[in-house]
């Protein structure tokens, strides 16, 4: 996630071109690999075993290494060994930029200082960003008074990252009671507190998300595509409800709703986390305590 956030920033600042942005991610695949891939490479597990853990990750909110240990496919010490191979994410990005002849680490550090200032990040915030840990990064993009929203937002972003696109970019979240959108899907779950989770967009901005999750090439964001978005939300809401059930809070999930022709989503104050998915901007909207509706 650090690579996407920083690379997107560098494009916006004119430091790298869109073409270089694309090539950067090819380069990054060479300088930093996923744990499953390294595990296969090191002979610790078969490709089938690694795929099965990846698949399992779409239903369980756990890291690859933790799941592999739980399933008896890796030992904790093997995971530690594999992690060392992955290298530091920020340095991997720096190495990729340097390999491509775009900038040196010192130049990148300067750009990061500008990013830090523009986004009002503390030093510890910047370290959190550089850690590339989604659990530490997502809260950086939420308002300071959004503690109640952290869990559900994090779960949603992690699920989208796992099941749709690992290269999503979060943008600063904000509160509003009405958001102009053209299409989307939402699900309400009754409980204490109740929650509405929605994904909304304009035009075809939700297309990549729908096609990837639905495993179907939709021609545009039509009702079938939104049905796929609704199913994705259903999984997120289900996992959120599962997490709450550990505290004996029972949620009643209502059927997801979706519409390909709306003017807005609203009805109560919601937290909107804009996400860049496949170069398109979409909105993850969450409301705790009230029901949101399309208007």
């Amino acid at each position: 996630m650090i690579a996407n956030i920083v690379a997107n920033y560098l494009v916006n600042k004119g430091k790298i071109s869109v073409e270089q942005y694309s090539r950067l991610f090819d380069e990054l695949t060479r300088v930093r690999a996923k744990l499953g891939l390294i595990a296969v490479h090191e002979g610790f597990m078969t490709e089938y075993q690694a795929d099965s853990i990846n698949l399992l990750q779409s239903t369980i909110d756990m890291r690859f290494g933790d799941l592999a240990v739980e399933k008896g496919l890796l030992t904790a010490s093997q995971v530690q060994e594999l992690l060392k191979h992955q290298g530091d994410p920020y340095l991997s990005l720096a190495q990729a930029l340097e390999n491509m002849g775009i900038m040196k680490l010192t130049d990148l550090d300067l750009m990061m200082k500008k990013y830090q200032a523009e986004n009002e990040l503390s030093s510890s915030n910047l370290e959190a960003l550089k850690s590339d840990e989604i659990d530490r990064i997502v809260p950086l993009f939420l308002p300071p008074d959004a503690d109640d929203y952290v869990d559900v937002m994090l779960l949603a972003v992690k699920t989208i990252s796992r099941c749709v696109d690992g290269n999503i970019i979060p943008i600063k979240a904000y509160y509003t009671d009405r958001l102009e959108v053209q299409n989307g899907a939402l699900q309400f779950a009754d409980g204490n507190p109740c929650v509405t989770i929605a994904m909304c967009g304009d035009g075809n901005s939700l297309l990549k998300m729908a096609s990837t999750y639905g495993r179907e090439e939709f021609p545009c964001v039509n009702m079938d595509a939104l049905d796929a978005i609704a199913e994705l939300i259903n999984c997120i809401t289900g996992m959120y409800a599962t997490a709450l059930s550990a505290n004996r809070i029972d949620m009643e999930l209502y059927p997801p709703e979706f519409d390909d022709s709306v003017e807005s989503i609203g009805g109560a104050e919601m937290l909107v986390l804009p996400l860049v998915v496949g170069s398109k901007s979409v909105n993850l909207c969450v409301c705790l305590g009230e029901r949101l509706e399309f208007e």
Partner: peptide, 9 residues
């Protein structure tokens, strides 16, 4: 078939 988290159901 459930999307998880529906203990009562």
């Amino acid at each position: 078939i459930s999307a998880a988290g529906q203990r009562e159901k």
